[in-house]
Design a protein around this nucleic acid. Structure first.
Length: 858
DNA sequence: AGCACGCCGACT
DNA sequence: GTCGGCGTGCTC
C-alpha cells in the first residue's frame, strides 16, 4: 500500500504530494485524511495523506515509509482533502496551508530538536583526543542537563554553532527530534476503583510503526468494603472514600471526589499508595460553557413571512438538493428563528448543520439561543476560546457528539460527514474573508461544501453584499445562482427608528467645534435625565489618532512603514499598527521645536474624555481593541451595560453588531463618513451597511428610539439611503458606479502585491509581471474568441502602482490588480505567471502575494 | 522551510 | 594552499 502525502513545508517546491509506503504495522491506520509523521530529507515532518494506492510510479528504492499515524481517526474527511486541493488552486496557496486551516490550531505540529552527549563518545576514544575548552564546556553543559533543546544549546554557546555541528558529525553529540502537537490534552487526576475501566479516549493516541497498541488492562477487584472494615477506626475518612467507591464503582475525578466527600487529597492518595484504588492522569474535555445554564427555548410560531421562507428552505432540505439562498431580512425580522427551525428540520433528517456568525457578534446571547434550542448537540467555536477549548469543541465533532456548530469563519471547515445546512448570518461582513493565507472566503467554502454534500446554504443579511444580490438576478441564459428570499416586516411590529442626518460642516459654521453636534448633545442630555441609555459609535477605521505639529505640519510617522503613528493614551506612546514600532510621545516637535504638537483625530479615548468633560459624572463603557483584549472582557462590558451600570456604550464597529439592549433609545454615530475616504471601492457599501446596522440598535423594545448620524458628506447616497433604511435605493445608486468603474459584482478581482527592500528592482519586476499577465490574458481572450464558445471572458490588468501603504516593515510595496470575468480562469493565468517568476523571486528576495477577491485593494 | 553540495575571498 | 561565505537544488 502506498500513500500520497502533503508535507508540512509551505514552499513552492514542496507544494505537491510525495509518495510513501505504508508499513504493514500501519495498514488499516493510514487513511485518506490521516495526519502522519513522515521522514522528509533529514527530518521527520507532519503530513496529510491525500491519496491511497495499491501501486506507485516512484522507484521503490527511493520510497520511504510512513513512521507514525498521529491520530486514532483521520482528522480530515475525504471531502476536506478535496476541498484543500480546490482551495490551493483557487486561492493560490500551498496545499498544506489550506489543510492546516481546517484543523484546530492545537494540531499544528511543533518541531523540536534535542541534543545529548553520546554515551559512546564519553566512554570511548574521545578521551584520547584533546578536547578544546569549548568542547569541554558543551559536554559539561549537556551532561548536567541530560538532554537539551538544540535552541537552548545554541543560546548558551552562540559562538559555537559550527563546533556543535562538527561534534554531531563526529558522534560526540547525538541529536533526536520530536514532533508534538501544540498542546497537551488536559489531564485530570482520576480515581479508579478496582475493576473500573478507563473510558476510551483514543482521539490523540499515536500509532507508531513497529509497535502494536497495548490496551490498559486492569487487575482484580479487591473488595473495598472488606478493606474498609479492616482499617483502624481513626481512618474514618478513608473508610468513607472506600465505601463511596464501593457503591459507585466507576472512575471519578479526584477533585470531584474530594468535593463530594469533603476529604483531602492526601486521604485518597494514601489509599492509592496502598494499591487499593487506582489514581491516574486521564484526559478530560474542557467545556467553556460547563457551568452555564441554558434556558430551554421552544420553537416560536412563525409569522406568515417567516413561514414561507422556512417552507422553501425545508423543501430543499427534504429533497437533499443543493441550493444557495440569500435571505434578505430587515433587522428584527426574526431571521434567527428561521435559522433555528431550519436546523431542527435538518437534524430530523439525521444531517448536520453549521452556523457562521461574524466573530464580533458571537456573543453569549447568540450562543445562548442555540444552546437553549439544541442543548448538548451544539459546539461553539470562536477565537476567544483557548487553544485547548477550541480543540475540545472540535473533538466533540470528531466523535459525533454534536451535530450543530456555531462559530466564526473557520467553523465552515468542521469535519461533519452528513452536512445538510450551512447558515451564514450577516453574510456581507468582511470578517468572513480571511486576511492571511489561505485567503479564503467562508461564503465560497460554504457553497463548495454544499455542492459536495447536496446541502442548503442560507446567507442572511439586512444589507446583502452586492456580489450576493447580483447572484440572485438571472444570469444571461440561465437561472440565478442564488435564490432570493425576503422578510420585510419586523416581528414585534415596532417601526424602524427615525434617523437624523446631522451636517457637521453646518455645526462648524455655527461655531460648534466640539465632536458632538448640538442635536446629539441635547439627545445625550435627555437620556441622562430620563435614565435611558445611549450607544455611541465611532467608525475608527482609518481614523486613528495621529500626532501633528500645528506650527510646521510635521506628522509623526513610522520609520519602517509609510504610515502615521497612532497615539496611545495609556502608555503615552506612539505606535505603528503595522509593525508594532513604538516610541514615547514627544513634547516638542522634532522638526521645528514647537510646543504645539498634539494628537489629532477622534479615537474612542478622546470621545470618552470629551464626554466626561461635557457631562460630569457620566458613566461610560468604552469598548475598543484596548479594552477588550482580555478574555471575557467583551462579555463583562456588555453585561455591565445591560445591567445599566453605565449610561453610554462607546465603541468601534463592535458595538454596532447584533447587540440588543432594551433601554437603549439613542444611537449616535460620531463620524459616519470616515470610511468613505479610504482607497476602497466598497467604501460606500461599508458605510451603508454600518449605518443601517447601527440604526437598527435603537428602540428595539418598548421604548421608541432615535438615531443621529453626524457626517461631513450628508448628501452622499450611502448616508441618505441608510437613513431611510432603503437597501434597494442604495443598490440602485451603487451598481451603476460599480459598472462604470468595472468593479465587483461586474467583474472579479485579484490583487497581486510585490514587496522588496529596494524600489528600482521592485518596480522593474512588478512591470514585468504586469506585462506577462497582459500577454497571457490577451492570448486567453483570443483562445476563447476562436473557440467560439461564446464565453464571456475578459481580463484587464491595472498597474503596477505603489500600494496604498507604500512601505511596511522597511519593505516597499507595489501592486497590480487583475479584473476579470468568465470561467476561463484568471487565477490559472496568475498562477502560471507566478510560477514563471518563482526563480527570480527567491533569487532577489522579492515576495509576491496574491489575494483572490480581496476585500480592499490594500 | 532546512540542509547539503558547490564554487570564489581572507587567513594558518 | 584551506576555511567558509551563501547561491542552487532537493526532499518520496
Amino acid at each position: 500500500m502506498f500513500a500520497k502525502v502533503i508535507v508540512d513545508v509551505p514552499a513552492k517546491q514542496t507544494n505537491r504530494a510525495f509518495d510513501y509506503s505504508v508499513p504493514p504495522s500501519l495498514q488499516g491506520w493510514v487513511e485518506v485524511g490521516s495526519r502522519v509523521g513522515v521522514p522528509f530529507g533529514p527530518r521527520v515532518l507532519q503530513g496529510f495523506v491525500v491519496e491511497l494506492h495499491e501501486t506507485t510510479t516512484v522507484d521503490p528504492k527511493r520510497l520511504k515509509a510512513i513512521r507514525h499515524v498521529l491520530d486514532a481517526a483521520p482528522p480530515l474527511t475525504e471531502e476536506l482533502v478535496q476541498l484543500g486541493h480546490w482551495m490551493s488552486s483557487t486561492y493560490l496557496c500551498h496545499e498544506v496551508t489550506a489543510l492546516q486551516a481546517m484543523l484546530p490550531g492545537a494540531l499544528k505540529a511543533k518541531y523540536e530538536r534535542f541534543v545529548q552527549a553520546s554515551e559512546a563518545g564519553s566512554a570511548g576514544r574521545t578521551e584520547l583526543l584533546l578536547l578544546l575548552p569549548a568542547q569541554e564546556n558543551i559536554l559539561n553543559y549537556l551532561r548536567s542537563k541530560g538532554k537539551a533543546k538544540m535552541e537552548d544549546l545554541l543560546d548558551a554557546f552562540p559562538e559555537d554553532g559550527g563546533l556543535i555541528r562538527q561534534m554531531l558529525d563526529e558522534g560526540q553529540l547525538v541529536e533526536t527530534q520530536g514532533m508534538k502537537d501544540r498542546l497537551a490534552t488536559k489531564k485530570a487526576l482520576t480515581v479508579f476503583p478496582p475493576g473500573a475501566h478507563e473510558a476510551s479516549e483514543a482521539a490523540t493516541e499515536t500509532h507508531d510503526a513497529g509497535t502494536s497498541g497495548n490496551a490498559p488492562g486492569l487487575g482484580g477487584s479487591a473488595d473495598l468494603l472488606a478493606i474498609a472494615e479492616e482499617l483502624p477506626a481513626r481512618s474514618h475518612k478513608q473508610k468513607e472514600v472506600l465505601r463511596y467507591l464501593h457503591e459507585n464503582p466507576r472512575p471519578i475525578r479526584l477533585t470531584e471526589l474530594m468535593d463530594k466527600l469533603q476529604v483531602g487529597a492526601g486521604t485518597v492518595k494514601g489509599l492509592a499508595d496502598k494499591g487499593w484504588i487506582g489514581l491516574r492522569e486521564v484526559e478530560v474535555m474542557r467545556d467553556p460553557y460547563a457551568n452555564r445554564h441554558f434556558e430551554e427555548t421552544k420553537p416560536l410560531p412563525l409569522t406568515p413571512e417567516q413561514q414561507s421562507v422556512y417552507d422553501d428552505i425545508a423543501a430543499t432540505l427534504d429533497s437533499r438538493s443543493h441550493q444557495v439562498y440569500l435571505l434578505q431580512g430587515v433587522t428584527g425580522s426574526g431571521k434567527t428563528e428561521v435559522y433555528l427551525q431550519a436546523i431542527s428540520r435538518c437534524l430530523e433528517q439525521g444531517r448536520e448543520a453549521i452556523v457562521l456568525v461574524p466573530e464580533i457578534s458571537l456573543t453569549p446571547q447568540m450562543v445562548e439561543r442555540f444552546k437553549g434550542r439544541f442543548g448538548d448537540e451544539v459546539a461553539v467555536m470562536h477565537s476567544r476560546l483557548s487553544l485547548g477549548e477550541r480543540y475540545d469543541e472540535w473533538r466533540k465533532i470528531m466523535r459525533r457528539q454534536v451535530r450543530v456548530v456555531i462559530g466564526a469563519r473557520s467553523a465552515v471547515f468542521v469535519p461533519f460527514r452528513q452536512l445538510g445546512l450551512i447558515i451564514i448570518d450577516e453574510e456581507h461582513e468582511s470578517s468572513y474573508k480571511q486576511e492571511e493565507s489561505p485567503k479564503y472566503h467562508a461564503r465560497d467554502i460554504a457553497a463548495w461544501r454544499a455542492r459536495y454534500n447536496g446541502a442548503a446554504v442560507v446567507l442572511g443579511s439586512a444589507t446583502p453584499s452586492l456580489e450576493s444580490i447580483q447572484k440572485t438576478k438571472a444570469a444571461p441564459g440561465g437561472k440565478p445562482e442564488y435564490k432570493l428570499l425576503k422578510m420585510k416586516s419586523r416581528v414585534a411590529g415596532r417601526p424602524l427608528p427615525p434617523v437624523h442626518i446631522v451636517d457637521m460642516r453646518e455645526e462648524l459654521r455655527s461655531g460648534n467645534r466640539s465632536m458632538f453636534s448640538r442635536l446629539l448633545h441635547r439627545g445625550l442630555e435627555e437620556r441622562l435625565l430620563k435614565g435611558e441609555q445611549t450607544v455611541l459609535l465611532l467608525n475608527r477605521r482609518g481614523y486613528a489618532t495621529f500626532v501633528m505639529c500645528r506650527t510646521c505640519g510635521y506628522v509623526a510617522g513610522c520609520p519602517h512603514c509609510d504610515i502615521s503613528l497612532t497615539y496611545h493614551q495609556v502608555s503615552r506612546t506612539l505606535r505603528c499598527h503595522y509593525c508594532g514600532y513604538a516610541e514615547r510621545q514627544m513634547e516638542l516637535c522634532p522638526d521645528c521645536g514647537s510646543e504645539h504638537i498634539r494628537h489629532f483625530g477622534t479615537g474612542t479615548q478622546r470621545v470618552e474624555e470629551e464626554l466626561v468633560k461635557l457631562f460630569p459624572g457620566i458613566r461610560v463603557i468604552r469598548m475598543d481593541v484596548d479594552t477588550t483584549t482580555e478574555k471575557g472582557s467583551h462579555e463583562k462590558w456588555l453585561t455591565m451595560f445591560r445591567n445599566k451600570q453605565a449610561d453610554v456604550l462607546l465603541g468601534t464597529q463592535m458595538v454596532a453588531k447584533g447587540l440588543d439592549f432594551p433601554d437603549v433609545t439613542l444611537v449616535g454615530v460620531i463620524a459616519a463618513d470616515t470610511v468613505l475616504n479610504l482607497p476602497d471601492f466598497r467604501s460606500a457599501e461599508r458605510t451603508f451597511q454600518l449605518l443601517t446596522q447601527v440604526a437598527g440598535r435603537a428602540g428595539r423594545h418598548q421604548l421608541p428610539g432615535e438615531v443621529f448620524v453626524q457626517t461631513y458628506t450628508p448628501e452622499h447616497y450611502s448616508v441618505i439611503t441608510a437613513s431611510r433604511h432603503d437597501y434597494e435605493g442604495f443598490v440602485e445608486e451603487e451598481l451603476p458606479h460599480r459598472r462604470k468603474l468595472g468593479y465587483p459584482p461586474y467583474c472579479r478581482l485579484i490583487l497581486i502585491t510585490l514587496t522588496h527592500e529596494q524600489v528600482p528592482l521592485l518596480v522593474r519586476t512588478a512591470e514585468a509581471v504586469a506585462q506577462r499577465l497582459r500577454e497571457l490574458g490577451a492570448a486567453e481572450q483570443e483562445n476563447v474568441f476562436a473557440s467560439g464558445t461564446g464565453e464571456d471572458f475578459f481580463m484587464n490588468v491595472l498597474g503596477p502602482v505603489a500600494s496604498p501603504i507604500p512601505r511596511i516593515k522597511d519593505r516597499y510595496r507595489f501592486q497590480c490588480v487583475v479584473k476579470y470575468r468568465g470561467e476561463a480562469s484568471a487565477s490559472r493565468i496568475v498562477a502560471k505567471v507566478l510560477d514563471e517568476f518563482a526563480e527570480r523571486t527567491t533569487k532577489d528576495k522579492l515576495t509576491i502575494s496574491v489575494d483572490v477577491d480581496p476585500q480592499m485593494l490594500m
